[in-house]
């Protein structure tokens, strides 16, 4: 499968943007610049290939509905930051990594296996009970941000995840 490769300028500018957005939201990029820029390159490759920046360390079939949980930042970033001080690909690291100069490594895969994901998708398809709320409550699956409104925001104001990463919470 071939696609146009990202240019050095594209990599630099996405790296800067992701770094700024991370800091604004209380997150941090991996301080190993070379390693991190290589991951940003991978994200851009995936974005060109699939139309969305899926995790550079996970395989994709290019079907957005099946990959929503691994579009960067992935659903597993925050629990992995909590437990391992880094996300799966190590694009993001915890504050402790910066402050205490901890080194980060390859961590176990938190994403369920393909067969587990298929089983979960079947189980989940029922509608939620309507309650007497004025508005439904939406939850960002990446960072947990909650908002009560007719539909989720286009982009999560905290972690910048897109609208389709929200789930109905109440």
């Amino acid at each position: 499968m071939s696609a146009e490769l990202p240019t050095q300028d594209e990599i630099e500018s996405r790296y800067t943007k992701l770094g700024r957005e991370a800091e604004e939201g209380g997150y941090h990029l991996n301080p190993d610049r070379e390693f991190t820029k290589n991951l940003v390159r991978g994200l851009l490759v995936n974005e060109k290939r699939y139309g969305y920046p899926s995790c550079p360390c996970r395989i994709s079939f290019g079907i957005r509905e099946e990959d929503r949980d691994i579009i960067c930042p992935c659903d597993y970033r925050d629990p992995d930051l909590d437990q391992y001080n880094a996300c799966y690909c190590a694009l993001y690291v915890s504050e402790d990594v910066l402050k205490k100069h901890l080194s980060v490594g390859s961590i176990p895969e938190r994403r369920p296996t393909r067969s587990e994901r298929k089983a979960a998708a079947v189980k989940k398809s029922g509608p939620l009970n309507d309650t007497e709320l004025l508005y439904p409550v939406w939850r960002c699956r990446v960072c947990g941000y909650l908002c009560a409104r007719e539909s989720p925001p286009l982009v999560c104001p905290v972690c910048k995840a897109t609208k389709d990463r929200f789930e109905r919470f109440i």
Binding site: L39, R41, C57, I59, S106
Partner: peptide, 30 residues
């Protein structure tokens, strides 16, 4: 995967160790 940082490090380590091996970048397969 051709896009993965840990894969790159693993590949570099095999190179450093100089062991005979096969590899495939699964994301580049048709």
């Amino acid at each position: 995967l051709s896009t993965c940082g840990w894969c790159a490090k693993t590949k570099a380590l095999l190179h450093e160790l100089g062991v005979d091996h096969y590899y495939v970048f699964v994301d580049l397969l048709p």
